[in-house]
Simulated assay, not measured.
Amino acid sequence: MKSLISAIALTVIAFQPGVAMSNEFVTFGASDSGGTYGVIAAAVSKVANVSDGDLNVSVEATVGGGRGNVRLLSKERLTFGLATVADAVNGYRGTGAFEDSKAENLRTVMLGPDLPFHLMVRADSDISSPADLKGKRLVSASAGNALTFVPGGLSGYGLDKDSYTITQLSGAEAVETFRDGRVDAYANFNFMPSANLSDLATSIDIRILGFDPEKLAELIKSVEMFNESTIPAGTYPGQTDDINVPGIAVGIFTTDSVSDDVVYALTKAVMESNAEMKEMHSMAGTLTKERQGRMLKAGRIIPPLHPGALRYYKEIGLN
Rank of each mutant, 00 (worst) to 15 (best):
S31Y: 09
S33Q: 13
S33I: 10
S33G: 13
S33W: 06
G34V: 07
G35I: 03
T36Q: 14
G38I: 13
V39P: 07
V39H: 14
V39S: 14
V39G: 10
I40Q: 09
I40L: 08
A41K: 05
A41N: 09
A42R: 14
V44N: 10
A48H: 04
N49A: 13
V50H: 11
V50I: 15
S51M: 11
G53K: 08
G53N: 06
G53V: 13
D54C: 09
N56R: 09
N56H: 13
S58Q: 15
S58L: 15
V59W: 11
V59M: 04
E60Y: 10
A61W: 06
V63L: 14
V63Y: 08
G64S: 04
G64C: 07
G65Y: 04
G65C: 01
R67H: 07
R67M: 10
G68S: 05
G68H: 05
G68I: 05
V70S: 02
V70T: 08
R71C: 00
R71S: 03
R71E: 12
R71T: 03
L73Y: 03
S74Y: 00
K75E: 15
E76R: 07
E76W: 00
R77W: 02
L78F: 01
T79F: 05
T79V: 05
F80P: 06
F80N: 04
F80H: 07
G81A: 04
L82E: 04
A83Y: 00
V85Y: 01
V85H: 07
V85K: 09
A86E: 11
D87S: 15
D87A: 15
A88L: 03
N90E: 14
N90T: 01
N90L: 03
G91F: 00
G94L: 12
G94N: 06
G94F: 14
G94W: 11
G94R: 08
G96R: 02
G96H: 08
A97I: 13
F98H: 01
F98N: 01
F98V: 00
F98I: 00
F98Q: 03
D100Q: 11
S101G: 09
S101W: 02
S101L: 07
A103G: 04
N105D: 00
L106P: 02
R107L: 08
R107K: 11
R107Y: 06
T108E: 06
V109S: 13
M110K: 03
L111V: 14
D114K: 14
D114S: 14
D114I: 13
L115G: 07
L115P: 02
P116G: 12
